[in-house]
Design a protein around this nucleic acid. Structure first.
Lengths: 204, 204, 204, 204
DNA sequence: ACGTAAGCGAGACGGTACGTCGCGTCTTACC
DNA sequence: GGTAAGACGCGACGTACCGTCTCGCTTACGT
């Protein structure tokens, strides 16, 4: 009745995976992702190198699984997120954005490295895609004229998504000088303005 | 008296460097930057591997020198760029932006890869820093209140710079569906609006 | 009262050991002994790998136990072997040799591999030692002068023992083109001649 | 006129190969061939492991090349060997056999291991094939009746070849208690007798 | 016949060697 | 002096086996 057999993984397995994940994060912070080798990770985690390969095909796989688990969690928290009552009426930061920022804050050193020049482009890409997806969910609620001569929606999405990452980068590179809520508020106001401005009224 | 010594390089040297540069670009397009090895480059360039190391310390150095030469050229073209007469009065795309976009268009396949997940984070970083520098040149001309409770200028710069890269990414990933001038116009209007909006009047 | 405790093994145990033995033989025939791994054996035997190690310390141990059991059997059959009435009087093949050859014939494919280049030197060595022992049993019955300048007995023993293996190798590599009895006859005649010739009369 | 360009191999290359060969021989003597790893060899030779693989595909290849070079040399020495004047007329050991035994004596420790249970079956096989080839060269000079019911020639060849190895094994395992010439004499007398006896007159 | 100790399946783990690849340095000969 | 050719040391990679070790399940045995 209780031990939920579908995810009752071997205790040793969970321990090993956790140790490897933590080691990877620490080392990435210290010397960048590219500069971190599988051997480094396993030595730090005090796990045999061959054991690493029993769980992950390479360091990128370890990375991916970490992100996947993490973003799953953020996604779960976000279920309480109610679309419809937050956009362009009142500038209140959406719940999901705040919880994303809180996660980023938790791993701020890690994100600082991963989104920077010692990081990994496919990581940045994943964050970007995640943000893009969020924006696209918002879009249908706004009037989207999309007249031919008009600024294309996709351009706008790419613009605000990258901009969002830019805001996050600023935040973590300056030791998060404001609360997640504050940043979320500024950020969503900027993005919403961009989108409304571009899609709503065309000045010319 | 000695043929303008700063650029009278040995013909063989210029040939070798050019071959290596072209090979690197081709291979990066084909298999990503990380996946391209020095041996690949030298084989494609039909140059001996040890010769590579006489000119560049590694592939990142080759990359850097390529970018440096290129952006030098763009910078030169941009000298005609007159700050002051283009911002927030009339939404005319600045000359420099257009010439940057034209350069990007010339190497669009290369940029598509380098700014994407097969690219190199330090490349992206350099492009970003370049754009940021451009924005900061513009800033002093605008009134910047920077009250404490207000959206920080640095956040704004990071926001619009990343957004600019986002626009470029959209452009090259969609086979440049509009002219450089058109994109420059859209892009500068969006950025200016962001900056004016945030710095000029605080709605709330 | 307890059913002869030395061989009343658990049924499962006997089954497992037999399966493993057979698998080893098959695989050795197919891909040589060195090329056969413990995992191969257990997979073929449909037995868990850890079960293998409960019975044998490694594949060499499995090998040894197989040989030991087998040669025990041959030894038993050989008890009827009466030394003294077969050597240098009449060239009749000794019983023991024939039963050895019959055993070899039964496992001819296995011996073909094990005595060849995909085999195992320690296996060959064991066969050799077995044959040597047989010859040494015969020796005391012959007059052995062993004068200093004379061909040493040990050399002779090594000579005929290896020769015996050579005969067996020829036999199994040519699909046993003659009966065990025929080969035994030829072989013992050759060996006896060597030994008589060398030990009995020195031509020069 | 002097630097014989066809075999003027890079001096470093010759040095490296020699060091590796010697290391392999030493280690094989110390711990057997199977028990010697590539890493062992390279450490002993004070050569980087990857350099090993630039010259040899694995330790077996190193072995083979060593044997090939060596037996080439023996073959060269043997050119003075004149078939026809040594067989079955006078029991004088053939030149080739003596030079083979001298080579074996030079590397006696190595051969002791390689032909024994810590050795390698394919090595033994090569030695065997070499000896077999020598015997077959001798054969045509003898009258070979080969009547159907008669002892097959191939059996005889296998018999004497293995026997020859047996003699060598005895020799090196007993610290070569006699001169190569003495052993060669005994050995060729035995083998010749076997072959004459079997092929010449059939007692029954 | 049946309860229990054994044998067994499943598989994580620490080790060690493998053969490959890429790097950057170096030497030698050629032009 | 620039280049080709290529040996070399270094060190990471991902794979393959090895032998050891739980941990539950099931099955033949002994009374």
């Amino acid at each position: 009745m209780m031990h939920n057999m579908e995810e009752a993984e071997d205790l040793r397995v969970r321990r090993t995976r956790k140790l490897l994940q933590e080691a990877m994060i620490e080392l990435t912070i210290e010397k960048g992702f590219a500069g971190t080798t599988v051997r480094d990770i396993t030595e730090r985690a005090m796990v045999n190198r061959s054991t690493f390969y029993r769980h992950f095909s390479d360091k990128y796989d370890l990375m991916d699984q970490f992100m996947h688990e993490t973003y799953q969690l953020i996604g779960d928290q976000e279920e309480s997120f109610q679309p419809g009552n937050e956009c362009h009426t009142e500038y209140k930061a959406p719940v999901g954005l705040v919880s994303l920022l809180k996660h980023v804050q938790t791993y701020s050193s890690f994100y600082r490295v991963m989104l920077g020049e010692k990081g990994d482009p496919s990581f940045t890409q994943k964050v970007l895609k995640y943000i893009e997806r969020r924006f696209r969910h918002l879009l249908p609620n706004m009037g989207l004229p999309n007249k031919p001569t008009t600024l294309p929606v996709d351009l706008l999405v790419s613009y605000v998504s990258h901009a969002g990452v830019g805001a996050i980068v600023w935040w973590i590179e300056n030791a998060q000088p404001c609360s997640p809520e504050q940043l979320a508020s500024w950020l969503s106001r900027l993005s919403m303005a961009d989108m409304n401005r571009a899609l709503g009224s065309e000045g010319e």
